[in-house]
């Protein structure tokens, strides 16, 4: 048994850490995502493609690196640390759905090369009763989807419809759906597009476990980076002639950050390993990893706002960027309340 990453995985981790730290430290990520526009940098996207991140889990025959959930988690953990802007996880999930559908190597190759952006459009609700929904007939998709990530930049969308999963060709009619997190570019899409049926909707369910683990890895990165920033601040900021880090109430909140970060690391990588190895309980572990790591990212970033005091409430400090990413993750890639229900169902079925 071994928890540590393999040699190859460690090399990937080191390369990825230095890539994100130099290419897009959080300050750069902020500039990109807070500017008007696409919400990510086309230049950086090309680099992601060149370094193989977009095709990370796609088969080598489809221009990918053929790696698994552990490697994906290694990469997304670093992306989460710097709040890397853009639909990185989303296109990786699209390659997984396309791979499962079969016969889609050409599109996958284009995604991996950074030539095409394809993401999933699967959400039908804003509120429980506010049903959009899409239909497919005669090579055409109609209807609407909400919370489609970076839809305005997408060349094609994978849309769940009454007939099954279809690949719809852009351009798309998008209405932006601004949320608490300015780094996101969600949109409501009204479809009237040419599309091809590629399989049934269970293809999306098959992607779900990977989505949970990927989001959990992003959250782990948030936990780490927000925790480290807070601890650094607590040794620099002085009140009453002492660094605030000497105060035990704050020390204990920061100790809780360690507790949550290290526990998140344990379950995120266990979940990734469980997916790659087809473990029988991988569904339960993936759901739990997503829920625990994202809940932790939210707790840690909220504590971080508090420990930064007035500075923590300013736009200037980075704390709110991590907080808002944590808030986004809470309700996407598996929403909190659904995951809690799913976790319980798995134990009831045991």
């Amino acid at each position: 048994m071994r928890f540590e990453l393999s040699e190859d995985q460690t090399l990937l981790k080191d390369a990825t850490t230095s890539f994100f730290a130099s290419e897009s430290p959080i300050e750069t990520s902020r500039e990109v995502s807070e500017a008007d526009g696409e919400g990510f940098s086309r230049g950086q996207w090309k680099k992601l493609a060149e370094l193989g991140y977009l095709g990370l889990i796609a088969a080598e025959s489809a221009g990918g690196a053929g790696l698994g959930a552990i490697e994906l988690s290694v990469v997304l953990q670093q992306a989460g640390r710097v709040c890397f802007p853009g639909p990185l996880l989303d296109v990786v999930l699209a390659t997984r759905a396309l791979t499962a559908a079969g016969g889609q190597d050409e599109t996958i190759t284009q995604i991996a090369a950074g030539e095409k952006i394809v993401v999933l459009a699967q959400s039908d609700r804003v509120w429980p009763d506010d049903i959009g929904g899409a239909t497919f007939a005669d090579g055409h998709v109609k209807g609407s989807k909400v919370f489609v990530p970076f839809a305005a930049s997408a060349d094609a969308l994978l849309v769940t419809t009454d007939a099954g999963l279809v690949l719809a060709e852009g351009p798309f009619a998008c209405e932006p759906m601004p949320t608490v997190d300015e780094a996101q570019r969600f949109a409501r899409v009204e479809f009237d597009n040419a599309a091809t049926l590629i399989g049934d909707n269970t293809l999306v369910e098959g992607v779900w476990e990977l989505a949970h683990v990927g989001a959990a890895a992003l959250a782990l990165g948030v936990c780490e980076a927000a925790g480290e920033a807070t601890i650094r601040y607590s040794t620099e900021r002085e009140t009453f002639g002492k660094p605030i880090g000497v105060y035990q109430v704050l020390q204990h909140r920061m100790a809780d950050m360690v507790l949550r970060t290290e526990s998140s690391r344990a379950i995120v990588f266990r979940a990734a390993w469980s997916l790659d190895n087809g473990a029988a309980d991988r569904g339960l572990v993936a759901v739990s990893a997503k829920q625990y790591a994202v809940e932790s990212a939210n707790e840690i970033t909220l504590a971080s706002v508090q420990i930064h005091g007035g500075n923590g409430f300013t736009w200037e400090y980075n704390v709110h960027r991590w907080l808002k990413l944590a808030m986004t993750l809470d309700h996407h890639y598996g929403a909190r309340n659904d995951l809690l229900e799913r976790a319980l169902e798995q134990v009831e079925a045991q």
Binding site: S263, A266, S288, A289, Q291, Y292, L339, R342, A343, Q346
Partner: peptide
């Protein structure tokens, strides 16, 4: 469900 999630996390800590 929340207890289930925490229990799985506890187990993961032990496994590590």
């Amino acid at each position: 469900g929340k207890l289930v999630v925490d229990w799985q996390t506890l187990y993961s800590n032990g496994l590590r």
